[in-house]
Design a protein around this nucleic acid. Sequence first.
DNA 1: GTCTATACTAGGATAGAC
DNA 2: GTCTATCCTAGTATAGAC
Lengths: 192, 192
Amino acid sequence: MARKPDPGTRDRILDAACRLFDERGVRAVGMQQIIDAGGCGKNLLYREFPSKDELVVAWLERCSQGWPQLLEEAERRAPGDPAEQLATVIGLAVEGISGPGFRGCALRNAHAEFPDPEHPAHRFVVEHYGQRRADLCALAERAGADDPEALADRLSLILDGASANGAILGPTGAAPTATAFARAVIASATEA
Amino acid sequence: MARKPDPGTRDRILDAACRLFDERGVRAVGMQQIIDAGGCGKNLLYREFPSKDELVVAWLERCSQGWPQLLEEAERRAPGDPAEQLATVIGLAVEGISGPGFRGCALRNAHAEFPDPEHPAHRFVVEHYGQRRADLCALAERAGADDPEALADRLSLILDGASANGAILGPTGAAPTATAFARAVIASATEA
DNA sequence: GTCTATACTAGGATAGAC
DNA sequence: GTCTATCCTAGTATAGAC
């Protein structure tokens, strides 16, 4: 009797790929390594992801989901308080940075690995950062900021700075100070 | 008659390598491409740089010289005014970001490409960022900041944030706002 | 039918020999 | 500057287990 196709195959492959891409970077990981780590055959991998580029984009899509999840968690922790939500978003993001093996924002890293603006991975990252900016802007506006775009930009700088600095200098660098910094900036931008 | 060894050989090779590494990233560039671009033979390249890793570190060393040059230029523009020097450093750095082909801090990009903490390129980047922090700290102290380390950390976040955000979103992102942001932070941290 | 495993192509990598 | 050795890459095709 014919076996049914395993619906979890795609996720299982993606799990293995994500872990390797996160740890070592994209170019340093070969398809064979993903096969070895994921416990699936080459045939199956190429059925689910016809090319490495598509696998990379699927990985980035998964990474990018952390951002809306962050927004939701902030909403849950400070319902009806957009200013506090902004501070919570930064705080939660900084928490994720404190780990010893933190390598920086995976999307930013992928962007660095694929400089070609036409590359699907590159385009995906640009689009995600544009979306993130719009989200911060909307939240800043609801928080009653005088200049929502200006506040969103400043928080973007803090966020991206914490990610980059934390990747290199770790918890002993500037990253842990980002939360208090963001709070001060938010307070200053939303005071009557 | 034997030709004299060209003393500019090393620089010429390094010029070609730097341009390629800057444009495409390290892993995307092969030694043969550097040979083709630099107009030198393979044996000459490997005489000057016995391995690709050493060539990469030489590239990073050259990149890292931009930082002390920035400090010197700021000193030249605002002699005897450390607070203004801090602002100038950020301003000059942001200027370099505004170009359309900006790919982000080369050191940060290299750090992302070589996650292994033992890799010479990785170690070099960590050391450079540590040095940068110390420099900012010293300047913040001379500027009379209440908490020089805190100011240095905040400026580090703005600097790294501008670099990362500018690489992805370019001049239409948050990077151009970094200079005014830094000025506000410096003013707030150094007022009597 | 579904999957793993292997062989294979065509090319590019670092590095070294000459 | 050329030529070679060794290895790894993405991707395709095939063989065979269940």
